[in-house]
Amino acid sequence: MFSGLTNRRTLGFCIVFFILLLFLPLFLPRFYIYLLALIFVTGLLATSLNLVLGFGGMYQFHHAVFYGVGAYAFALFSKKTGLSPWLGYILAPAIAALVGMVMGLITVRLSKLYFGMLQLSLGSLVWAIVFRWYSFTGGDDGIHGISVPDMISSTTGSYYFTLIVTTVCLILMYMIVNSPFGRTFQGIRDNPERTEAVGVDVKRHQLAGLVIASAFAGVAGSLFATVEECAFPDLLFWTLSLELIIMCLLGGWFIFMGPMLGSAIIVILRTFVGIYTEYWTLILGIVLMLLILFLPEGVLGYFQEKFSKSKNAALVEN
């Protein structure tokens, strides 16, 4: 089943990297472990966005909604019910997927910018409800002191949990991207008209893609709630969604690991620039400007472009 998914060298590199990550908590200070967990969560979220954005070509302008919904679903579940918090990790993606499906049913009829704008307005509606519904969501204060299963409540525990869940989700998403569904999805990105002409129900595939992406965003949301033990309305605010798009762009959105790299860069920059100045968004803005002007294919995309000439010829092994 896994054969042919990736070549040996890449697989080997990934395994070594994963093992390295497993051992990091033994010698890294706590803050860095926490930071890494945050990178995994953000990276997972950005990768899930890229599933529809980079591989599906859909203008998903408000992906953060599903992240927030996942975080809130997990938080509210653990706060309001006496049931095991572990169940929250199943509930969060399920609710996020449900919200994704409802929004998708309304939006997939539209194309490109209209789709994005309607997605943005529906998402803003969800944000407004969360923001105002004090009695249920805590309004702008959010929810604090979420109870997380003991096993993963420590920094190291949540690090391992995040690492493993993120890895599993990445593998699943990688498989989806390389599955017939993923292939078809990329066809829709390149040319929806042609894809429909070869007998593919484009709208249904787009809807399915949206639901899948929102489910993974929901997982990321529940992980965030685990790491930070809180949830707040900013998780669903539209500026976060655009920042996610920046992460995809920065890493390169035609490459699977691009968004992961992009979010690592952004999270690290934000953390360390934030130490020296409160004007972090100014720097982010300038980075984004330079990126669009000079590196529109992203960092990984740039390198791939550079080396693709020789690679192209080697691809014929099929």
Binding site: M1, N178, S179, R183, H205
Partner: peptide, 10 residues
Amino acid sequence: TFNLFFPAKN
């Protein structure tokens, strides 16, 4: 086209 997990390569 709705097959999600089998590698398309094969």
